[in-house]
Amino acid sequence: MPEEIKAHITGVVFEIAATPGARVAAGDPVIVLESMKMEIPVEAPRDGAVKEILVREGQTVQEGDVVALLE
């Protein structure tokens, strides 16, 4: 069962930091949000592989939106 990675703030997707299939460690940035002139990484909650990125650069996401799946 893949784990959902959720945005912890509202912002605009500034950068996709990890590609599907990539291995990430807990705390690695998966995407970077831009909100109110700040760049804020959304981090992997645990070690794993990125299954899917559900957003694209420039898209606005709300706090709590699922931005990626981790397996």
């Binding site: 912890h8 703030i9 509202t10 912002g11 909100s35 109110m36 700040m38 804020i40």
Partner: peptide, 14 residues
């Protein structure tokens, strides 16, 4: 500022 000081000054739009 629209920021949350309790969460490291994360932006708080709305």
């Amino acid at each position: 500022y629209a920021e949350d000081p309790a969460r490291g000054f994360l932006p708080s739009p709305g």
